[in-house]
């Protein structure tokens, strides 16, 4: 099999050129969808019979939480590419994905707490499996970032973080199921109104769906922007980067 296309896609230069074409479109669609989702969510969602206007929190929370689950699989795939094919671009993506993923996890926890403080009457609830496993996903992402910053050698750090991402990805899944099981066994009487399935009409999930799309686009745009920076920084001795920087 001919792998030329794979290495071409993985070359920083062609990635940079390709994303230069994509970015304007991505940003436009992101701005439109996010504005629409925000306006729709804030102004148009009717109050839920149980949760009132707090379903507006869930629009954000569900979109960010769902998207944050994509980070470990993404980093694991990028890590595999780093370890197997030694493509440096994969590591540049993975490095920024770890930081952005930590942001996503943190915002998920913060918005979840703000919702829980109304619906459960508490900011933190150990009996909610999703909250607890999200906390440990957050910790594992911080671990990847910490490992990266502890290592001086770029190449070694890339491989080490790639391996830790793969191990972490498997671990996040195991943690998720363990915590769920733990809750079922350990605390049969969970607080009332725990599930957020109360709000599930189309007037709720349509803006949420739009928000999910917007957040995914935001993830893509932010990741592409920081990966491009990573390329400019790491490849600063390359001729094409020098020309590009001199022109800007």
């Amino acid at each position: 099999m001919n792998w030329t296309w794979f290495h071409q896609l993985g070359s920083p230069k062609s990635f940079y050129a390709l994303t230069s074409q994509w970015l304007p479109w991505l940003v436009t669609v992101m701005v439109i969808s996010m504005t629409a989702a925000l306006v729709w969510a804030l102004l148009y969602i009717p109050p839920d019979y149980q949760q009132g206007y707090t379903t507006r929190i869930l629009v954000i929370h569900v979109a960010v939480a769902g998207t944050s689950l994509a980070f470990f699989p993404l980093m694991a795939v990028a890590g595999t590419i780093t370890l197997v094919w030694r493509i440096k671009l994969a590591d540049m993506v993975a490095r920024n994905a770890a930081t952005l993923g930590a942001w996503f996890s943190f915002v998920t926890l913060a918005t979840g707490s703000l919702w829980g403080s109304v619906m459960w009457g508490t900011w933190w609830e150990w009996t909610d499996a999703r909250l607890v496993s999200m906390l440990f996903q957050f910790f594992l992402l911080l671990a990847v970032i910490a490992l990266r910053s502890a290592m001086d050698d770029n190449d070694k750090a890339a491989k080490a973080c790639a391996l830790l991402s793969i191990v972490g990805c498997i671990n996040v899944v195991i943690i998720k199921y363990s915590v769920e099981w733990w809750n079922v066994l350990h605390q049969p009487n969970s607080p009332v109104g725990m599930s957020n399935s109360g709000a599930n009409g189309p007037e709720f999930w349509l803006p949420t769906l739009l928000m999910v799309v917007a957040v995914y686009l935001f993830l893509t745009v932010s990741l592409i922007l920081s990966t491009r920076n990573e390329i400019l920084h790491r490849e600063r001795k390359a001729q094409w980067v020098r020309e590009l920087l001199a022109a800007s």
Partner: peptide
Amino acid sequence: ALTVGLGSRGLILAVITLPMTVPVLIF
């Protein structure tokens, strides 16, 4: 194994390893 070459590795080892032990701790 990931941190064996690092100068100061006491805390980073804990940060990496402890979250992974959750399933064992639970059961």
